[in-house]
Structure formats: C-alpha cells, structure tokens
Simulated assay, not measured.
Amino acid sequence: MSRTVRLFQLMQALRRLPSPATAAALAQETGVSERTLYRDIEALRGLGAVIDGAAGYGYTLIEDPHMPPLSFTDDEIEALVLGLSEVAALGDPALAEGAQSALSKLRARLPERQAQQLRHAVLTAHRFDPPVPPAVDSRAIRQAMRTEVAICFDYVDAAGQATARHVKPLSIVLFDRSHCLLAWCLLRKDFRMFRLDRMAALEITGDSFRPERVPLLRSYLERLREEIAGNRDRAG
C-alpha cells in the first residue's frame, strides 16, 4: 500500500471513528503499527490537517483542509440523516457502507453545532425486517448500468425454473423485501424484472448498449405505471 493511500485511509478513519480515536484503533483501521501511525499523524499535520491529541490520549480531527465547511438548515440535516439511515437499513452491503461513510464525511465538514445535531438527529430509520441480501455483487451490476454494458447470469424464478439470462441492466429497485433488477431481456426480447437474491454466476460481458439505457428505462417505468393503474381500475 502506498503512503498516499495509507494517509487517505487514516483521514477516513479519523472522520469515522468516535473521538478521540486511540492510536491502537487507528493503527488497526489502517493496518500499520502504532509507531508508523504516530508518524502518519505528524505527516497529516504537516499537510495542513488540524488534529488534536497525542499518544496515550487519542486523536480528534478538528479541521480537514480538503473539505471546507458546509452549512445546512436544521431540516436539511434531519433529511440527510433520515435518507442515509434508510439507505443503510435497506441498501445492499456496499450501499449501506457508503451511507455510513457519507455521514462520517458530513460530520467532518459541518460546523460543530450542526455536527452535534447530525450526531443526535431526532429523525432516523430502523428496519426490523430488512431486505433479503443479494446473491450477486450488486455493486458490479450498478457499474454495468453506469457504463451501459450487458450482463449474464443464471436465474431461478418463483416456480423453481432455472434459465441463463443475457440482459441490458436498467435499474435496481426495492420491492417489498427484495432488490430487483429492471432489465431488457435478450432471451425473452422484452422487459423483465429479476430478484437479486435469485441470481447467480454474474458476468459482466462488456457488450455495450449505449445510449439505450435511459430511453429503455423510461419505457419500462411507463409500462409499470400503466400496469399499476390498470390493476387499480380493475380492483375498483
């Protein structure tokens, strides 16, 4: 690991860990000895980071020179905490980790009063019945959607029938307790929805379908809205 990467990880750890963070905890986070950790703290201070504390007392990041202060209204802070807490509760493991990291970065950038409010927000989100975890790497699927490349995977439907699918991934949505992939299926030549917990053997093919994702997704969402409206009319 390069020294630059190690210092970046140390800054992240200082933002994330409860203050004051002990040298032992910081060393464990960055995978170095405590002796190296002390040198890295001094290196960050030399680069302009204001870090309070000393060996035996723990360290607190007072000022991050790379992240200038932000200011939010009280309601904006509550909305940020509620939204990121919901992602942490409902997202896949990578998104949940990203939500926690985003909250840590916000705390580092806010003025002290607002950072305190963020730590003790009156709104949050808890889920006692979390979604079923994906069986494949959902982060890889999201990257395939961003770059608009097709993916392949094995799939088992609700009836237990197994098929191999080659699709153009469009979006991931949460329905009830399942993360579902909205896609154009090249096997069925139509829009299809796939539960991530029923997928296996994911492969990113590299076959580009740019710039089709946005118009395809728009068409699929419109179809879903029409189906929902039709079901409501029949139920009424």
Rank of each mutant, 00 (worst) to 15 (best):
G98I: 00
L106A: 10
P68V: 13
R109T: 09
L110P: 00
S71L: 12
T73Q: 12
L61E: 01
R107V: 08
E112Q: 14
L90P: 01
A89I: 03
S85P: 04
Y57V: 07
L118V: 06
A89T: 10
L103Q: 06
A43W: 08
L44A: 10
G46S: 14
R119F: 08
A54Q: 15
L44M: 04
E42H: 07
L84E: 07
I51G: 03
L103W: 06
A79T: 08
E86Y: 01
P69W: 09
L118T: 06
A96H: 05
E78G: 06
R45F: 08
P131K: 00
I51P: 00
G48V: 08
L82P: 01
T60Y: 11
L106G: 02
D64C: 09
E76M: 09
L106M: 10
A94C: 02
R127L: 00
E76G: 03
A49C: 13
E76A: 14
T73N: 05
G58M: 06
P133C: 02
L44Y: 07
L70T: 11
L123A: 10
V50I: 15
F128N: 01
V81D: 02
G53Y: 08
K105R: 15
R109E: 11
P130Y: 02
E97W: 02
G53F: 08
A49K: 03
L90E: 03
P68R: 14
A43E: 14
F72D: 04
P131E: 04
P111K: 15
I77W: 00
V87D: 00
R45Q: 06
V122E: 10
L84F: 13
P130F: 03
V87M: 06
R127N: 14
P93A: 10
H126D: 05
P111E: 10
D129Q: 12
L110K: 06
E42P: 11
T73G: 12
V122R: 15
L90R: 09
S101L: 07
P68I: 01
